[in-house]
Design a protein around this nucleic acid. Structure first.
Lengths: 147, 147
DNA sequence: GAGAGTCAGTTGGATTTCACAACTGACTTC
DNA sequence: GAAGTCAGTTGTGAAATCCAACTGACTCTC
């Protein structure tokens, strides 16, 4: 680090869900893949780091472990309330990836409860208009503080 | 890696903008901090990795370098079209961080062009309703493929 | 009831990346 | 001409990652 950093909720969010394998693990759980081996296969993470990432996600309260088999005791990973609320992050990443990185048709498709194919859009919570480049102005930036 | 991984636009997006210091650099540029030393100070990244991150972002076309001084030649970093479109990702991270990690008031505040304080919401592009946990169903998941 | 299979991790060792501080180079300002 | 600014680069030690193989607790099959 360079001695200073900005106080910002983006930094704070990344500290919890910002690691590569953490986000991918959350994606798999969001996709309904709840078990360790499924998450390994879906993310491509090595078992050891995935185990530590899941542990920190559980400690952070983003994910909970639920018993699905008694003998031997086995747990599956379920999104908590805060975990469910990462959907906007995942969907924003997916939309961006679809548009600017992935070639061809989107590999993953969701349907919204309204019946339409889901394409997430980000809107202003007040006026409900889509957010476009240049229509947001900074009122206050988090301070840049030493250490 | 574990030999397999899912084909998914989230993975693809993360390959381009998923590194910790990459997202934070994009945040700083989004916040209007366009110069190397400003980005160093705002992110807290060490100069060497930040330099390589910015280089890969430029190569990926997410950011461009624009000359702002001739003698000596100095460049500042500006979001390209695809770079501007990471706003939903940044705003989703910020909202989540505000809600679940940051203690106290949000450190960073934006105003939307409608006049209200900006709080991003993610909606279904078709019916415009906010996306809630459980109202999206999987139509197709990207394949899990070897290596 | 012995051997194979399933599942969720853990362990050990090589490799890669990262962090930090100091340095270069091209200039401008005092 | 000495000091300052700005954008990086370099070198080195510390830390994180990757991979494959292993453990442990069971169940299922022959």
């Amino acid at each position: 680090m360079a001695g200073t950093a900005r106080i910002c909720s983006i930094t704070n969010a990344l500290a919890v869900v910002g690691e590569r394998w953490s986000i991918l693990a959350l994606r798999e759980i969001f996709f309904g893949q709840r078990r360790f081996d499924q998450i390994v296969a879906g993310t491509g993470a090595s078992r050891d780091i995935l185990a530590t990432r899941l542990r920190t996600l559980v400690e952070a309260g983003v994910v909970t472990k639920e018993l699905y088999e008694e003998h031997p005791p086995r747990y599956e990973y379920v999104l908590s309330e805060s975990g469910e609320q990462i959907a906007p992050i995942l969907l924003a990443l997916m939309e961006w990836g679809n548009r600017y990185v992935t070639e061809g048709a989107p590999p993953t498709v969701f349907r919204h409860s309204c019946g339409a194919e889901l394409h997430a859009e980000t809107v202003c919570g007040h006026c409900r208009a889509p957010i476009r480049p240049g229509d947001s102005t900074v009122v206050r930036l988090g301070e840049v503080t030493p250490a």
